[in-house]
Design a protein around this nucleic acid. Structure first.
Length: 579
RNA sequence: CGGGGCGUAGCGCAGGGGUAGCGCGCCUGUCUUGGGAACAGGAUGUCGCAGGUUCAAAUCCUGUCGCCCCGACCA
């Protein structure tokens, strides 16, 4: 490729819309262009990176025995109604009507479509196991898209689905994807970690997330400092441990706490340790089965003043489809008291308490009366509670559930997520097959996703410097740039062309920056775009009988003496010294 | 959905009732050629959109749309 004829317009200044490094550099390097919030065009340079990521994924999926197909982007409402998700997926599902007033949506994921396909094509255990995948544009109408390709509304995703006749088979299929994912992110040159995760709106029995480690990541990873255990903070188990405080139980005492709302404010006002001032929060739990019917209920949850409630855990404890903090008006409506003075005593809602509170006595809680708290409360004595549960976020220093180590916290970007679905979709949608005994049973499923654009963006988050992107070789838009420094010098041009053509014939993905620009301009652009290897040919170095090769990542400079196999030598450096 | 900010040239920004500006980029020429050169000349705008006030609106008022950030998890 000749850069003078290619389509690259780099920017010197950072467009004001970009906040994070990957977004800034992708815009400056002319890789993407915004169309609307969370929707981007992939310019030629960006598309090259996307395609490389896709091909690495494809190669490893095929190697793992998965088979590629391509499903429709537009999906009819009926499919989503049959799984029950038409009503449960929420506003992220972009819905619309066709000219005949029929309901459709843009596919945010494809469990329904793939289950429908398999339902109509697979009848027997003999046709399984089978894992199908596609690489395709998805649309999710995110509440708040941000950070360029990191959280877009329209984005490219690889999604795969496995089908097995039994649980044991499904576990094997899951493990194959697990291994393939590790191979994929390793091949992309990304430092990553696999963590236990919550299944979220997809559902299923267990799941793992693949996290690229980067300080700018939106996800919090909890991991043990001694063993291999690591999990998303949403999922990380908190061990129930501690010793009951050994203090005499005092009598309850109502105290005025005017305008003190937060646990910290109340603790300071009363001169009490914040640990003894737990927070009581009202949570709306949707889709809870009560007397055989699904209902939305409200519950009160208590955690220690220095802890945070974990909604995923509450959702699981209450056995709800979703759990959200109640709005102010809901709290007032359900408890007769506003936020800031809530407590477990005489609470009209069911009260779920975090394990950590089991070990405290004489605590301070809201009086369910505006501006008042109650001192010296002891939950077993003074309140009616549902029991003690693990409903808080794990924190650094918490004990590991698997060894005697303790938790630590790191930030990560979720680039892949795999789920053991079980029979959730096959049962609701009636995807069954005959087993060896001739019995018709629901197929056991798994689903597996990779964010392609997010993978590319997180590669930048992990690999950049003050000059620009430092692409891992495997996903760089071009592996090598050849720069003739004096475009008016025939000898320089001839030598550059010779190396460029030589590399081309060796199968190297190479670009020659033949623009009539000064050296500084080309160097700066090369560094911004992040070509892993740069070959400079100048009048000066030719007169010294050599050319210069620079490795972007390390800055290492290698001089090659002039010979008729320079391309081979450059390729050798690329193969052996560039990662 | 709540709060804040911003919409003026491709990008970054200034201007703030009286004919639209600067830097970078872009075009032409001269010159230069190993780290974003210099000089000369030049092109580019429905000042987000719609109403209103005014002799006159990018500027003031009203509405609206778009974009960005923060929050929507700790009471």
């Amino acid at each position: 490729m000749r850069q003078s004829r290619y389509f690259i317009q780099t920017l010197r200044e950072i467009p004001s819309e970009a906040e994070v490094v990957s977004h800034q550099l992708m815009l400056r390097a002319s890789m993407i262009k915004k169309v609307a919030a969370g929707i981007y065009d992939y310019l030629p340079l960006g598309l090259k990176v996307i395609r490389k990521v896709e091909n690495i994924i494809r190669e490893n999926m095929n190697k793992a025995g998965a088979i590629e197909l391509l499903m429709s982007v537009v999906q009819p409402a009926e499919l989503w109604q049959s799984s029950g998700r038409w009503n449960h997926f929420g506003k992220e599902l972009l819905r619309f009507k066709d000219r005949g007033n029929r309901d459709f949506c843009l596919g945010p994921t494809h469990e329904e479509v793939i289950t429908d396909i398999v339902k109509s094509q697979v009848n027997s255990y003999k046709q399984m196991p089978v894992t199908l995948y596609q690489i395709q544009t998805k649309f999710r109408d995110e509440v708040r898209p941000r950070f360029g390709l990191m959280r877009g509304r329209e984005f490219i995703m690889k999604d795969a689905y496995s089908f097995d006749i039994d649980d044991a088979g499904a576990d094997v299929s899951y493990q194959k994807m697990y291994d393939a994912y590790k191979a994929i992110f390793t091949a992309c040159g990304l430092a990553h970690k696999v963590v236990d995760a919550d299944t979220g709106s997809i559902g299923g029995s267990f799941s793992h997330e693949f996290m690229v480690l980067a300080d700018t990541g939106e996800d919090t990873i909890i991991s043990c400092n001694k063993c291999e255990y690591s999990a998303n903070v949403e999922k990380a188990v908190v061990v129930d441990s501690g010793e009951k405080e050994n203090a005499a139980l005092k009598d309850m005492e109502e105290v005025a706490t005017p305008n003190k709302h937060t646990a910290l404010e109340v603790a300071e006002f009363l001169g009490v340790d914040i640990i003894h001032v737990p927070k009581t929060m009202i949570i709306r739990c949707e889709g809870v089965v009560v007397d055989g019917r699904e209902e939305d209920i409200y519950v009160a949850c208590m955690v220690r003043g220095d802890h945070e409630v974990n909604l995923s855990k509450v959702k699981n404890v209450v056995k709800a489809k979703s759990a959200e903090f109640a709005e102010h008006y809901e709290v007032l409506d359900k408890t007769g008291c506003s936020i800031g003075s809530l407590g477990p005593c005489n609470m009209p809602l069911k009260v779920y308490v975090d394990n950590a509170l089991k070990y405290l006595c004489n605590i301070v809680v809201g009086a369910n009366k505006e501006g008042y708290h109650i001192k010296n409360v002891n939950l077993e004595r003074d309140a009616k509670i549902e029991g003690y549960f693990d409903i808080r976020n794990a924190m650094p220093k918490d004990k590991c559930p698997h060894c005697n180590g303790e938790y630590q916290e790191t930030k990560g970007i979720e680039v892949g997520h795999i789920f053991k679905l079980g029979t959730k979709y096959s049962e609701s949608m009636g995807a069954k097959a005959l087993d060896k005994n001739g019995k018709n049973i629901p197929i056991v499923m798994g689903c597996y996703g990779i964010g392609v654009g997010r993978t590319a963006a997180s590669a930048i988050e992990q690999h950049y410097d003050e000059k620009g992107i430092v692409w891992p070789k495997a996903i760089a838009p071009f592996e090598v740039v050849v720069i003739p420094l004096n475009t008016n010098d025939d000898e320089v041009i001839a030598k550059s062309d010779e190396i460029y053509n030589g590399l081309l014939s060796l199968g190297v993905d190479v670009i020659i920056d033949d623009r009539n620009e000064r050296a500084g301009v080309k160097f700066n652009d090369a560094e911004l775009i992040g070509y892993p290897l740069r070959v400079s040919v100048g009048k000066k170095s030719l007169s010294e009988g050599r050319i210069e090769v620079v490795i972007r990542r390390t800055g290492e400079v290698i001089f090659l003496d002039l010979s008729n196999n320079l391309a081979d030598k450059v390729k050798e450096i690329l193969d052996t010294k560039v990662i």
